[in-house]
Structures are given as C-alpha cells and as structure tokens.
C-alpha cells in the first residue's frame, strides 16, 4: 500500500541524505557510529531470509539495498579519508551494549516461533531497531544541536516509522486477521523515542 511505500521511501531517503552529508562535507562529526553499526546488525539479522523468502523483487531488492547502504555508511565512517578523522568518539558515548544485550534476551524469549533461530534473530532485529537511534539522539543532545542534514536524516528515519505505524492500522482494518504484536509494540516504542526530536525539529524549522 501507498503508506507503507512512503515509509520505505523515507527510510531509503534517510540513507541517501546521510551519505550525501558525509560525502559532501567530508565530515562525520555529529554522526553516531554506534547507531550506524547497530543498523548494520539490525538489517543483517532481519534479512537472513533473503536466501529463501522471495516475496517480491521489490522486497529482495530493498533488503539488499538497505544492507549495502548501511554497510557503506559504516565503511566511510571507519575507513573514509578524511571522514574517519572527523568522528567524535567522546561524544558518541551512549552505552550501546546495554541496548544489544536486552534485545538478544528479548529476541530469544519473545518471538513468533521459539523453535526457530531465524525467528529469534528476526525478533531481535525488531527490538534492536526500536532503540538503535538512541546513541544518535544522545549525541545530538550532547552536541547541543545537530547540523541541518543530520537533523533531516533523523527526521526521515522518524517519518519512516510514523508511516509504518499508519500502515499497520490500515492493514489491520483492510486485511482479515492481520495482527502483529511484536512489531506494533516495538514500532510504537521506536516512534515515541523521536517525539522530543520531532518537536525541536519543527520548532527550529519554524524559526528558519
């Protein structure tokens, strides 16, 4: 449906905005490497089914694109010259291990099929995605404010989540028996994390 497509497109746009920013400004200052590495982990654990689930060309292609773009971003941040010298590890200080560990436990404990390692990995990726933005938001807070393109990037990520939430309501109403507790709760948590950022983003755009 169109709402879900809009979500995917804003998600994809967020990658390109970030890549554009780090290529154009030659700087990754203010970007959280931890968040970007968490996204690589999210996509690699969620899209394991790329090898056997061929729902549509769109889905398979988007999975490859999401993995490739997230890996590319981490690569530029770690290896890019001069980007790697502009990274601020002292500001990127969110204790990310405390995000991963509970998500692993939750993924093992609460999933759609307790006998399937794939379902555990999949549930883990859903939980981790919900909180993966936290190191980035923490960094923005420590910095005081984010560069324009960085804030557009975070905004697009939040927008993607809002589109998906609306898409779930739509699917619930139009598809018989469509009901997904794990993704809905995680998605709602994820959206809530952006509220404060959204508020400040809109406020600063109004000032401009």
């Amino acid at each position: 449906n169109a709402i879900r497509l809009a979500g995917d497109m804003s998600h994809m746009a967020s990658f390109f905005v970030l890549l554009f920013k780090i290529n154009k400004s030659k700087s990754v200052a203010g970007i959280s490497l931890k968040t970007q590495e968490l996204y690589v982990l999210v996509f690699c654990t969620r899209y394991v089914d790329i090898f056997w689930n061929h729902l549509s060309l769109y889905n398979s292609l988007m999975k490859v694109i999401f993995i490739a773009l997230s890996v590319m971003i981490v690569y530029v941040m770690r290896r890019g010259v001069p980007q790697r010298s502009t990274y601020n590890p002292e500001l990127d200080s969110f204790p990310h291990h405390w995000l991963v560990l509970p998500c692993v436990l939750l993924g093992v404990a609460i999933n759609q099929d307790p006998t399937s390692p794939f379902e555990m990995a999949w549930a883990f990726s859903i939980y981790l995605e919900a909180v993966a933005i936290m190191p980035q938001l923490h960094m923005v807070q420590k910095h005081g404010e984010a560069e324009n393109l960085t804030s557009h990037y975070i905004f697009l990520l939040g927008l993607y989540r809002v589109f998906y939430l609306v898409n779930w309501v739509y699917r619930y109403m139009t598809e018989d028996g469509y009901w997904q507790a794990i993704v809905w709760v995680s998605g709602a948590v994820q959206a809530v994390l952006y509220l404060d950022f959204f508020y400040n983003y809109v406020k600063s755009k109004q000032k401009d």
Partner: peptide, 10 residues
C-alpha cells in the same frame, strides 16, 4: 497471529 505475516515488510 499470522506467523510471518510481516515478513513482507522491511
């Protein structure tokens, strides 16, 4: 709950 129903999403 339809098992795997959201696997069609990203």
């Amino acid at each position: 709950e339809k098992i795997g129903a959201t696997k069609d999403e990203l």
